[in-house]
Design a protein around this nucleic acid. Structure first.
Lengths: 176, 176
DNA sequence: ATGTACGTACAGTTTAAACTTTACGTACTG
DNA sequence: CAGTACGTAAAGTTTAAACTGTACGTACAT
């Protein structure tokens, strides 16, 4: 009964988390943790998902890096305890800032470097009309790309700040 | 010279496109198409990337499904011609509406189904105090999840409309 | 019709990712 | 200073994804 209803939702969560770039089993682990109100040990997880302890260890680490679980401390308990973070809005926005900023930074650097080279090429050599046109076309593209990344960066600012929740409002303060 | 500068940026684009869930080689294909101002045939791509024609065929199809390339027609040319769509803002927003809406719809359905079952369970049976609490806790979670998906849906609305560009402005109309 | 050019389905191969087993390092216990 | 409980690194295995080669179907050409 209640187990089946949970199972269905856990499966759905798992599918959803595919978009966060994690495997189905890591998704199910998060789903499982989401329903447990007690933090779990690695052996609890192993037991629940019928998987190896090593997998639980690496999976839970992946979830930590995505800010989807956290380690908690209980006095007297020596084992590592983990519980799901349950603020899905936070998880969503965190994910984007982390992933997209990382890639954006790398790309902007590459494009700026290439732009610099082309600008030099454009001035220093005597080029045919056609060559000059090709170079200029690429330069234009690079400016466009840089504008786009600039926009994307501002978009991520919006997500990271609470501004976004003024524009698209949460129904109620879900701090479940 | 110009080849190397392009190569660097194509590699960067490829990395970026990993976030769109495509493989590096599909990313490089898009990057290659992005710089060519002439549409390319499958054999052009095969030649350029030194890969099999079959790969080019399936890759270009994947890019089509992501709205990143389009087939174009040239009179007198019987072969399929493809060119990169170059509106990165559109690509970005399209991607999210497509991918996230799909998954969201599935999940909402699952959660609603489970919620229905729990509500029935809650009423029809005589439960211990503890059982009732567990059920109620799950019901609360499901409401939270539905609220979240509601918010996400509105967020996607914002992305799909041009509203987002009023809030985060493009530098200039890049229609390159 | 017969031939040719083209795109793609299908089966096979290679490469990479996910997962398990084993074994080790660290930290607490008596 | 053993002895035990725990988490994780490393190597090995299984499974899935990416890619290639072949072969087929369709459409136009002669």
């Amino acid at each position: 009964m209640i187990e089946n209803t949970r199972e269905r939702v856990i499966e759905a969560i798992s599918q959803n988390m595919f978009l966060y770039g994690v495997t189905p089993s890591i998704g199910r682990l998060y789903g499982t943790l989401y329903f447990k109100d007690q933090p779990m040990t690695l052996d609890d997880m192993k037991e629940e998902l019928k998987m190896s302890k090593t997998s639980m260890s690496t999976s839970v680490r992946t979830l930590s890096e995505l800010n989807m679980v956290e380690r908690v401390w209980r006095k007297g308990v020596r084992r590592d305890l983990y519980e799901a973070k349950k603020d899905w809005y936070q998880i969503f926005t965190d994910y984007f800032s982390n992933q997209w900023r990382k890639v954006t930074a790398i790309n902007v650097k590459a494009v700026k470097q290439s732009l610099k080279e082309l600008n030099k090429l454009k001035e220093n050599e005597d080029l045919t009309e056609e060559e000059a046109q090709v170079i200029q076309a690429d330069i234009d593209k690079y400016h466009y790309v840089l504008d786009y990344y600039d926009w994307l960066s501002q978009f991520l600012d919006l997500l990271e700040s609470d501004e976004i929740f003024k524009i698209v409002e949460k129904k109620q303060q879900g701090d479940n």
